[in-house]
Amino acid sequence: MELISNFAIQGAQMMLVLLLAPLFTGYVRKVKARLVRRQGPPLLQPYRDLVRLARKEVVLADSASWLFRTIPYLVFAAIWVAASLVPTFRTGLMFSWSADLIAIIALLGSARFLLALAGMDVGTSFGGIGSSREVMIASLAEPAMIMIVFTLALIAGSTQLSTMAAFMASSAVGLRVSLGLGLIALTMVAIAENGRIPIDNPATHLELTMVHEAMVLEYSGRHLALIELSSSLKLLLYVSLIACLFAPWGIDSAGAAIPTLAIGVAAYIGKLAVGGFLLALFETSIAKMRVFRVPEFLGAALMLGLLATLLRFVSGSF
């Protein structure tokens, strides 16, 4: 019985992130539009886009290989698995121990590796420019992320996300300098990894500074639907990650009682609403950077992460 309920909760988490991801993207777009006094697309527009894309035929470039057609499925699978392993409304899920935070980051790295290859596959200059910039950004964002993981792992004494979230929710944490630095660095990395303003503009298609959109320029139809869904999932994953580490309130720790689960889900949706609003507010209040300003931005994140880790190494009280 317990096995079945655990399984059901793990399954519910997988479906929840999958179903919420487009809604969250739509919500951020709506808030951004409202902030500049536009009407904005309806909240459900991303779902409609996905359905429309899935119904269309795929127009495949002549020079595309089998790899190009397989990659959307692999990228989607890797990101979906990663997103299902981040605690959203309940910690200690059935399979939460199968990958710790370092492995989750590396899974996202696998997805990015494949997507960068897809950008190179058709053999156009736009695909190459996107891939090359994406890996440059990743080469700075990943070490910054690992430093943040180190900081948090040293505070919580574990790299297991469920244990970390449970520790953060307990009163043993307190206010720490390294946590503050970690939060700032994690936010910067999350913005860079998801290609949001000021790193990249998710709303443009024909701009020479674009990164992610240039990489997936040749995709169409169902393949593009999967890629879009994966990037929504990735955004949701990072917001969930920040929420479960830095705002773990209301998250259900054990048991499968319906009321606590309901509180967990409600708290999660509330956190997403706040997180999405803050993201939209940040994006509307800042201008996009030139591509070669990005290393400075991410270098700052890396230094903050390194500083936080150093503080933890030097003394347990920071």
Partner: peptide
Amino acid sequence: AAFAIHRLASDRLRRAPAWDC
């Protein structure tokens, strides 16, 4: 994902020159 896509979505495919903006 592959199963769902091929059951529910269109499986038409057309080869064409690369788009490249």
